[in-house]
Write a protein that binds this DNA or RNA. Structure first.
Lengths: 196, 196
DNA sequence: TCCGATATTAGGACTAGGTACTAAAAAACA
DNA sequence: TGTTTTTTAGTACCTAGTCCTAATATCGGA
């Protein structure tokens, strides 16, 4: 089926986004146009060639790998941290984080950002969440930037209370009180401690 | 500096492993041999060409992506559901769900399973988590199978309380009380309702 | 020191998946 | 109808290879 140029280019963009591994040849067949047309389309849309796309995906992968090693496994980007005191992270809500039906962020992503920030702020070898009291105060839409602020409230014998408030702009969208277990050094402080 | 064949091939393997993006040309210079020699080496060591290597890395990345942001709307597999009453789901804890340091499942995955089950059990167009009171009662290790059981406790004017308990074997590992907002049909029931 | 084996290099033909460019044909529109 | 836009075709060139043949180099042993 032949489509208009505009329509075709829209679909082309989507198709390549979904599957960056597709060749011009295959796309030409898919859209029943010549390979040259596909190439003109890519030009107009500034979509790089197959190999560059693959390379990009691969490079992203490598970066992710190094990123997940040193900065620890945090959801969202930590932009400020004072160990055992406070921390701030940013999380951009993209299409994969929302419900398809209504475009609202799924709760567990906001929870993940907050929880992971609560873990990160603790200056110990190990930190585990014991309990949490959380509130989703406003729905968060796709393309929002969520800023989570964690504050250590108090700390006593292996237990630390961390308050996390998340905002979109000036709106509070999430609040949580996390009760964290901590284990100072390595081995024998066994995590069975986490029994609450 | 010229090395013996064996030595060179050993280094070659390492070099490519570290940086799969290196070309034969660059390797030839690095080892002061001809491009052909590098190619013979790759043959003998069964190392694929640059593009195949890059493609492999990229593909691995894509796989990871689908894994980390589940396509399906529910985290875990629902094995039983009675709308507005109860539901059960299974979630297998794999290496990507645990902290590298201690092999313990990160809290937000257990939360995600429970929260997502609470959403699923509600028989309405839309369900959003308003607040939640949760407890991680025991650490969950890699390769565990977590069974979450959701039960609708009560329901009144657009608000439904869902209790979720998650088990590994017979051990309770997580408990949460979720207060869910529900909107029967589509548009105008505006989600500002979620102000708590 | 010469011999044969192994290792290395050079070169040509071919490949995929393109870029960059020119030119012609087809379709859309005014 | 003429003009503009869009599409197609074709050429030369590119990278990073494969596959193959043939010519050298290098090395160990008799």
């Amino acid at each position: 089926m032949r489509r208009s140029k505009k329509e075709r280019q829209e679909l082309l963009k989507q198709t390549i986004e979904e599957n960056p591994f597709v060749t011009d040849e295959e796309l030409a067949q898919e859209f029943s146009v010549s390979v040259q047309t596909i190439r003109l389309d890519r030009m107009e849309l500034s979509i790089p060639e197959l190999r560059e796309r693959i390379k990009y995906v691969a490079e992203k992968n490598m970066q992710d790998e190094v990123r997940s090693l040193p900065i620890e496994e945090v959801i969202g980007d930590i932009i400020d941290i004072e160990l055992d005191k406070s921390a701030i992270s940013i999380f951009d809500v993209k299409k994969e984080h929302v419900f398809k039906r209504n475009g609202i962020a799924r709760g567990h992503h906001l929870f993940a950002q907050a929880n992971s920030l609560a873990v990160a702020v603790i200056n110990d070898e190990m930190a585990l969440t014991g309990k949490a009291d959380i509130r989703f105060t406003q729905p968060v839409k796709e393309n929002s930037r969520v800023i989570a602020k964690a504050k250590v409230v108090r700390s006593q014998k292996g237990r630390t209370i961390v308050d996390v408030s998340s905002f979109v702009g000036s709106d509070l969208v999430f609040r949580g009180e996390f009760s964290m277990f901590r284990a100072p050094s390595a081995e024998k402080e066994e995590i069975d401690e986490t029994r609450n």
